[in-house]
């Protein structure tokens, strides 16, 4: 188990050492976002602008026009909402090479309550032209995708989570922006997931397997540009899809998959995620359960699609 925010701390340090143009712009939560080591080792590539997120976005835009590759580091709630218009105006519209790297995505700032939980973040970012969105699910894929984001020329929103999550991949696995990864192969039902809930989806696959149902599990780590080929294949080859995410079911991965299905005019999609309600203080998995997201419920939903029982 290792947290995605730790993956960010480790990978950004490696990237910064390799490339003096890689910058980190902190907003006074470097400690939680795991950038302290970067700040200590590479002070010439580091800025802490204080609790001033809108300014962080604009400063990064300015840095980018001078050839830097700034990673703004903050919580997802602030990185997607407090600086939203600045991202739109000064980063996405002029297509500047700024990365918005956010920890504490979804319900993971569990005890902090609704103010700090970000259940809307990549849904908002998804509507911004020129934006690329990455939602990794484990430590190694996270590191690989951060590296890919650094090499990608243009705005990228990266969503990490707070708590340690199980390893799903090996260190040597490489990930490509826009190319979904098949975690499990199967032909009875497709489960499309991303982020910290991937381990629940995997457990659901095991539960289904024990009932003789084989699920294809896709890691949709790139929410935008969506791997429409992988989604199309799932719909045309299987036709039954469950989406699972730690995000509002509105405008998240479920919505993106539905858009593809609607375009094809076929397929059934069940969206699992936050039920369009704010979070509250409580343990992470209790909060997910309150929204109907558990391994058992994912398996039940998938099985009902296969058997035709509601």
């Amino acid at each position: 188990m290792k947290a995605l925010r730790d993956a960010f701390g480790d990978e950004i340090l490696a990237l910064g050492r390799e490339n003096p143009n890689v910058y980190v712009v902190d907003c006074d939560i470097g400690k939680s976002c795991k950038t302290l080591e970067f700040a200590r080792q590479l002070p010439q590539q580091h800025l802490n602008v204080g609790i001033a997120e809108q300014n962080a976005a604009g400063v990064s835009a300015g840095l980018a026009t001078c050839g830097k590759i700034p990673f703004v580091s903050t919580y997802a709630a602030f990185g997607s909402m407090r600086m939203c218009e600045q991202i739109r105006q000064e980063i996405c519209y002029p297509r500047l090479n700024v990365k918005i790297a956010c920890s504490h995505g979804g319900l993971t700032p569990a005890n902090d309550g609704a103010s700090h939980q970000a259940i809307e973040d990549y849904g908002i970012m998804r509507t911004l032209p020129n934006m690329t969105i990455l939602v990794p699910c484990d430590y190694y894929s996270c590191r690989s995708l951060i590296r890919a984001a650094c090499q990608w020329d243009g705005p990228v929103y990266l969503r990490f989570t707070r708590d340690p999550v199980p390893f799903i991949y090996r260190e040597s696995d490489q990930f490509e922006i826009g190319r979904a990864r098949t975690v499990r192969e199967g032909g009875d039902v497709a489960i499309i997931a991303a982020g910290a809930v991937m381990s629940l989806a995997l457990q659901a696959c095991d539960l289904l397997h024990s009932q003789g149902i084989e699920a294809r599990l896709l890691d949709m780590h790139t929410v935008k540009p969506l791997d429409t080929a992988a989604v199309t294949a799932a719909i045309q080859e299987i036709g039954r899809v469950v989406t699972v995410e730690d995000h509002n079911i509105i405008n998240g991965i479920g919505s993106a998959v539905c858009e593809v299905a609607a375009g094809l005019g076929r397929g059934v999609v069940k969206r699992m995620g936050v039920q369009d309600q704010f979070g509250e203080s409580g343990p992470y998995f209790d909060l997910l359960e309150k929204n109907g997201v558990t391994a058992q419920s994912i398996a039940d939903t998938a099985r009902s699609l296969v058997t035709g029982e509601n």
């Binding site: 300014n55 400063v59 300015g62 105006q89 000064e90």
Partner: peptide, 21 residues
């Protein structure tokens, strides 16, 4: 040197440029 149009944002970008310099 910088896209603008939404007020209040340009100075941040200028600060970013001056920092890079």
């Amino acid at each position: 040197d910088m896209t603008a149009g939404s007020l209040g944002q340009g100075l941040s970008a200028a600060v970013g440029m001056a920092l890079a310099n």
